[in-house]
């Protein structure tokens, strides 16, 4: 099953189950539409831009350096919202399934969120991830990629109602999140692929990364 089919099935089950009252569903959709319409996704870094380099702690506190990983091969980075977002969890699981194909092409895979180490450990544990989940405290790196945005007062209120207390989850009070974004960075530090979608119910297929990684491998062989 393709990732987007899983996400769509989740959405439709959730609406059918009535788990979330319809007025809240409507407000959540309105929030997404507002973010899409803001055009913020176009300000994020794109293919052809130089990726910012970073060193961030993973879920266990070990420092992971993008420069070091790029020394070994291309780097796939997935910016996600947090363990409280079921769409992010479904995506992380799909990336874990694709990890062998990614690594077979000489690339490494990492995920980055603004949540604290304990919640990052929960992401790894609950989704059975074999790749590091980095802690971007305060969203400094998300910001450098042009992904971080401040939630609207309406969305903050809605998230509080739903129990998504970002202050507790992220360990800081900015009430900001990265737009979900997936990047492939070549060993020259230049972004080879980027997809940013403020509509967090839609994520690119992990298998679509493979032609990009194949091309990077071919370019290296030349």
């Amino acid at each position: 099953m393709r990732l987007q089919e899983k996400l769509d099935a989740f959405t439709s089950d959730l609406i059918k189950s009535g788990q979330i009252p319809e007025p809240i569903v409507k407000r959540l959709i309105a929030g997404i539409q507002e973010l899409v319409a803001s055009g913020k996704s176009e300000r994020a870094l794109k293919a052809g831009d130089v990726a910012p380099s970073f060193t961030l702690p993973d879920e266990s506190g070990r420092l992971v350096s993008s420069v070091k990983l790029l020394g070994q091969g291309p780097l796939v980075i997935s910016f996600y919202r947090g363990v409280w977002c079921p769409y992010c969890n479904i995506e992380l699981q799909a990336l874990e399934e694709a990890r062998a194909d990614i690594e077979a092409r000489g690339a490494s895979l990492i995920a980055v969120s603004m949540q604290n180490a304990a919640n990052s450990r929960k992401s790894v544990r609950e989704n059975k991830l074999g790749f590091p989940v980095l802690v971007d405290a305060g969203g400094k790196i998300s910001n450098k990629f042009g992904l971080r945005y401040a939630l609207s007062p309406e969305t903050i209120e809605l998230y509080r109602t739903l129990g998504n207390d970002l202050e507790a989850i992220n360990g800081e009070s900015s009430w900001s999140l990265p737009m979900p974004g997936r990047y492939v960075v070549g060993q020259d530090g230049v972004i080879a692929f980027a997809e940013v979608n403020p509509d967090y119910t839609h994520r690119p297929e992990p298998s679509d990364l493979l032609p990009i990684l194949d091309q990077l491998a071919r370019a290296k062989a030349d």
Partner: peptide, 19 residues
């Protein structure tokens, strides 16, 4: 001189480095 081709669809911004 532009190394990336940028696309938009349904609000998502996708770009690919092309040679």
């Amino acid at each position: 001189g532009v190394e990336g081709w940028a696309f938009k669809k349904d609000g998502k911004a996708t770009s690919v480095r092309v040679e």
